[in-house]
Amino acid sequence: MSAGPLDPTPLVVGVDGGGTRTRVLLCDATGAVLARVEGAASALQTVQESVAADIIKSLIAEALAAADRPDTRPAVCVVGVAGAGQERAAQALWAALAQRRVADDVSVQADATIAMDDAFGDSAGVLLVAGTGSVAFSRAPDGRIERCGGWGPYVGDEGSAAWLGKRALGVVSASQDGREPETALTGAVLTALELESLEDVIPWAAKATPGTFAQLAPVVAQVAATGDLRANALISFCVEELALHVRTLARRCFQDERAAIPVAFNGGLLSRGSLVRKRLEQRLKSAVPGAMIRAEEVDAARGAIRRARRLLGVEV
């Protein structure tokens, strides 16, 4: 049956679609969590809109089954996916999801938008996202929304996991040539990719997606932790790029990077305890002295649920 405004227990769905995985959260109208599921990547830089819609539909069905509501169509579904900041892509995904009748009402947002909903609600702050790709968003005290980065894997995504993976390959190839010193990254990369020689990297890279390049980011962090100079240089470069995103928005929206600025992180590269996050938090002490870093993890799917409940007419 179809859940709607008259249903005593309407359901809402929040979807966080990234370049590595898609997370789906199913809740009732009060926000109580009924099911959480994860599946394949649905970022629009990675897959076509129709493929993303199929992945999302399948995961919603899985969540409904887990909640013992397999025949119920949710009242509202808010989908936040990487790449949906481009209007054409967002409209195409919305049309594909509406055609598949995943919910009575569907809203498609950029992934950072739903993450900001969870991090700050309606308040001001800067959100830095660094997973497969990278982008920063800010809500100014006057309500303006500004963006920095987010130009995609072929133009930008500086400081992202895919960016870091590509640069690791550049370092090991230069080391092989003798243009750079030897580095432990060489053996670690070959082991991670299950390749026998660096020559095998060429056909691998030709077929690689941003998501597969991003799989090398943990390798860089692991080697950096052993003291390898080239791996550490890559981590430092990554941190500088990410700090620049935050500082740019701090100046644009708060006038001065020394002002009190709430800052939140999202994305696998910035998970709590990660090497990049630790060094970025340290770097921001000088780059953005006013940064007040949120300790709690940002859950973009939870932010999508917050937005879905608002669309349902619930005060949140």
Score class of each variant (00 low, 15 high):
84 A>M: 03
85 G>V: 01
85 G>W: 01
86 Q>E: 14
86 Q>K: 14
91 Q>D: 12
92 A>E: 13
92 A>V: 10
92 A>M: 10
92 A>G: 05
92 A>W: 01
93 L>D: 02
93 L>Q: 03
93 L>I: 04
94 W>K: 15
94 W>I: 12
95 A>D: 14
95 A>T: 11
96 A>C: 12
96 A>V: 07
98 A>E: 15
98 A>T: 15
99 Q>C: 07
99 Q>M: 08
100 R>D: 03
100 R>W: 01
101 R>D: 12
101 R>V: 03
103 A>G: 05
103 A>W: 05
103 A>N: 05
103 A>T: 06
104 D>V: 09
104 D>P: 01
105 D>S: 12
105 D>I: 09
105 D>H: 12
105 D>E: 13
105 D>A: 11
106 V>P: 04
106 V>A: 05
106 V>L: 03
107 S>Y: 12
107 S>C: 12
108 V>K: 11
108 V>T: 10
108 V>P: 10
108 V>L: 09
110 A>H: 15
111 D>V: 09
111 D>T: 08
111 D>H: 09
112 A>I: 08
112 A>Q: 05
112 A>V: 13
113 T>D: 14
114 I>Q: 09
115 A>K: 06
116 M>T: 04
117 D>H: 14
119 A>I: 04
120 F>K: 08
120 F>L: 06
120 F>Q: 07
120 F>T: 08
121 G>M: 06
122 D>L: 07
123 S>I: 01
123 S>E: 14
124 A>W: 05
124 A>I: 04
124 A>K: 05
125 G>D: 07
125 G>E: 07
125 G>N: 07
126 V>S: 05
127 L>C: 02
127 L>K: 00
128 L>F: 08
128 L>T: 04
128 L>Y: 08
129 V>W: 06
129 V>K: 09
129 V>L: 15
129 V>I: 15
132 T>M: 06
133 G>D: 05
133 G>W: 07
134 S>K: 06
135 V>A: 13
136 A>Q: 13
136 A>G: 14
136 A>I: 11
137 F>K: 13
137 F>T: 09
138 S>L: 09
139 R>L: 01
139 R>D: 01
140 A>S: 15
141 P>H: 07
141 P>D: 07
141 P>F: 04
142 D>L: 08
143 G>S: 08
144 R>F: 02
144 R>K: 11
144 R>C: 05
144 R>Y: 00
145 I>E: 07
145 I>H: 03
147 R>P: 03
148 C>I: 10
148 C>D: 14
148 C>K: 14
149 G>C: 11
150 G>I: 09
150 G>M: 09
151 W>K: 06
152 G>N: 09
152 G>W: 09
154 Y>I: 11
154 Y>P: 00
155 V>Y: 13
155 V>N: 08
157 D>G: 07
158 E>Q: 14
158 E>F: 04
159 G>P: 05
160 S>F: 04
160 S>N: 00
161 A>Q: 03
162 A>K: 02
163 W>D: 10
163 W>H: 07
163 W>A: 02
163 W>T: 03
164 L>K: 02
164 L>G: 01
164 L>H: 02
165 G>S: 04
166 K>Q: 15
166 K>P: 00
166 K>H: 07
167 R>N: 15
167 R>A: 03
168 A>D: 01
169 L>M: 14
169 L>I: 11
170 G>N: 13
172 V>I: 15
172 V>P: 04
173 S>V: 12
173 S>Y: 10
174 A>G: 13
175 S>T: 11
175 S>G: 14
175 S>P: 00
176 Q>L: 11
177 D>V: 00
177 D>S: 02
